[in-house]
Design a protein around this nucleic acid. Structure first.
Lengths: 244, 244
DNA sequence: TCAAAGCAAGTGTGATCACAAATCAAAATC
DNA sequence: GATTTTGATTTGTGATCACACTTGCTTTGA
């Protein structure tokens, strides 16, 4: 009986080979749309069509329509009574609503994470902080895409440590919903001068390193609030101008 | 120019007619599956097939597959690597995770609602309480379906008053996720004797009537926790029995 | 007798088509 | 000239088909 020998050989092969993975087209479309949404590539109130997206992504309508359906249930997109879908418009109420929910849930997540993050995890987010500084030092021109990506990595690296399989998808949904708004704010930030995001992030890191859950929660709330309050005042002044 | 006259006539007609609505088949399938899930009609770990559900619901596979996709993104269902979908199994960690999230989010919702509910809304939930008592008085046999429905109405009538378009879908998602677990607990409750749910609900109502947000939050937490802690101890003893 | 190979039924995924509703622009009507 | 009507195009929805993968059973070989 060569069974043991064959088994061993198979194991040796398995060690060499990487699992190939079988991502469906639908999954790729979904991920791509998510990325675009969180990155703020779509504008609020913009209407999306199935065939249009299918053409842009070079697939058929089938994977796109299912991906859109999923994004609608996450409230990342909005189904109009006409049955067309658009990215939800920004309103003052929605802004406040989103901010409150984010502080509540992401605050809870970071408080949980504070007790669970080891030196390994702390080191990881410090690396991300380093990359941020590097980016700022090297380039004068603003690389908004990279800023968005690094910011996302920083936050989710923390949230992943909270150990809750329930909270994380909710946070993703919240980012999906606030993505289109936030982009507007980041652009405005970059123009309005160097309000240092890194400073806020550093405060979060020191809170986490000392396992101070309350401080982590508060500094996170401050970090999240910035773009929201900024956008809020901007919207208010725009509304005031409309009235005149 | 009869324009104004015609307009007025149309308005008169519109006042008579109820909007007919154009619910798609997909929406109906989705609602039906939601109802089944929240009501706990599916068992944890049960595998669902597209064609099977399509036959049961008497439609084609198309609306079903899209509805399943949506439920998967809400974590109400789970996609296995085999690409089959099942209702998520119950584990101790998941139970604790769900309970914590529900107390956090539904607690926030009821705290907001406490400040916003008027006599009109209070009367509505008291009506639901009345129906509960009625049900209990008339029938000795347990009508679990009706219990589930009334419990749901009671809670969501409150949550609707919180005024947050962001929190409510999250709560719905949480109910979807805990539905299959809760059903097990309710059955066990009904057998284990008359632990009066109404008593917990009444405490919530008095807290809301006096606009006491903190008391509302706490009594809600107590109400939600019951089936969870019950199920938890049941699972633990089952696990202990397995080990022997 | 038992494990491996082979086969058949079942299942999810993606493409395409048919149809109804919505949208927009040109034409007709007052 | 403004409004309504009409018609063409676009769009979402549902059904059906083709294909690939999985699964479970039967058959084959040692």
């Amino acid at each position: 009986m060569q069974k043991a020998a064959i088994e061993k050989n198979n194991e040796a092969i398995a060690a060499q080979l990487a699992p190939v993975g079988r991502e469906t087209v639908q999954d790729r479309v979904y991920s791509e749309l998510r990325r675009a949404l969180i990155g703020g590539l779509f504008e609020p109130s913009q209407v999306l069509t199935i065939r249009g997206l299918a053409d842009a992504l070079v697939t058929s309508t089938m994977p796109v329509r299912e991906a859109l359906g999923r994004l609608i249930t996450e409230k990342a997109l909005e189904a109009l009574p006409n049955r067309s879908v658009r990215v939800p418009p920004i309103t003052l109420e929605r802004l406040d609503d989103l901010l409150r929910a984010r502080i509540l849930i992401e605050g809870e997540a970071i408080a949980l994470a504070a007790a669970r993050m080891g030196p390994r995890q702390i080191a990881t987010i410090e690396t991300i902080l380093g990359e941020w500084d590097e980016m700022r030092a090297l380039k004068h021109k603003k690389d908004v895409d990279r800023e968005v990506t690094l910011n996302q990595s920083f936050h989710f690296e923390i949230y992943r440590s909270c150990g809750s399989a329930v909270l994380i998808p909710m946070i993703e949904s919240l980012w999906l919903q606030s993505g289109p708004c936030i982009r507007v704010a980041i652009y405005a930030f970059s123009e309005a001068g160097e309000v240092d995001t890194a400073q806020y992030h550093r405060r979060i890191v020191t809170a986490l390193a000392t396992q101070d859950a309350q401080a982590a929660r508060e500094s996170l709330a401050a970090d999240i609030s910035r773009p929201f309050t900024f956008l809020r005042s901007k919207l208010q002044s725009a509304a005031a101008k409309d009235q005149t």
